[in-house]
Nucleic acid binder design. Structure first.
Lengths: 152, 152
DNA sequence: CTTGACCTTCCAGTGCACTGGAAGCCTTAC
DNA sequence: GTAAGGCTTCCAGTGCACTGGAAGGTCAAG
């Protein structure tokens, strides 16, 4: 892959943008339809022509994703910016909510880890002769059914 | 919904099983097609006739799900039991792997939480006047792009 | 002039665990 | 006999973020 570097800073095509950012062309087009990346100009033949702001936008999308935001949330942030100038307050709320959700998820997961570790330990030390057909496998006891819903 | 309790322990229909276990009829049929619940006998009119083992199986499925196993893994455990008598070793390996994966996920998430908390704090204390259009929102800095892939 | 790398659109599939709805039969109570 | 509320099957949709592939257009080099 040897890219022509003709007049650096001018428009680039989707493949160049992909190579420059590490985001696949498929994904770039998908981001456009998903509304997180603005539709770029086109050449006369219909090729997408990106400028440097596209790379910035992609970097923002990836950074926001790295913070755990969904594309829908990212779209909200972007459109909030487009209409109200500064989405900072919106973003702050979003991030605070997100942090709280993460905290909850984290303690849930940590509980789950304890449970699985206990099961795992049990499974390695149990007597296979204790297997009862109706339990499928007694290493996973059915009596532990608390409301551990939506745990994954 | 008032269920006839006629001769408790005999066959029950899908709605009764659903009421008894708290798993919806839709989900029960889905479990059958997914291969984690054996196809039950049918009445002459085609209704599913379950016995008590179905409730045990459902309890097992929910317990295994609570331990974070996917339906595919549960199906593996069940079929391993069907062919090799005691799936304990299989289950032990599965659980150990799962515990390790959870551990990894947990530290990943905890890192993410730190990051989001930092962003959240930043977002509430930043000067909105610093907003630069090309960053969409400077509360989410694009320079933090590490290989924080598959973080959700 | 052809080759090949690139680009376009559109449709469909992935994985996971369901969930909703339509069309139509069965069973029970009144 | 009829109404209600089961039950049956099958198809399709949900949410999330892509990914694959087909069919065809464009462009520069050899």
């Amino acid at each position: 892959m040897h890219w022509k570097v003709k007049s650096y800073g001018a428009g680039m095509r989707i493949g160049e943008l992909a190579a420059a950012t590490g985001v696949s062309t498929k994904t770039i087009r998908f981001y456009e339809t998903a509304g997180v990346l603005p539709a770029p100009a086109r050449t006369t033949s219909g090729y997408r022509q990106y400028d440097a702001s596209a790379a910035d936008r992609l970097a923002f999308i990836r950074a926001a994703q790295a913070a755990g935001l969904t594309l829908a949330q990212i779209r909200d942030v972007i459109s909030a910016r487009d209409i109200s100038e500064a989405p900072c307050h919106h973003v702050a709320t979003l991030l605070a909510d997100h942090a709280a959700a993460l905290q909850a998820r984290l303690s849930q997961l940590s509980e789950l880890l304890e449970h699985v570790r206990w099961l795992s330990h049990r499974a390695t030390t149990l007597d296979p002769g204790q297997c009862l057909p109706q339990h499928v496998c007694h290493a996973i006891p059915t009596s532990q059914l608390t409301d551990r819903s939506s745990s994954r």
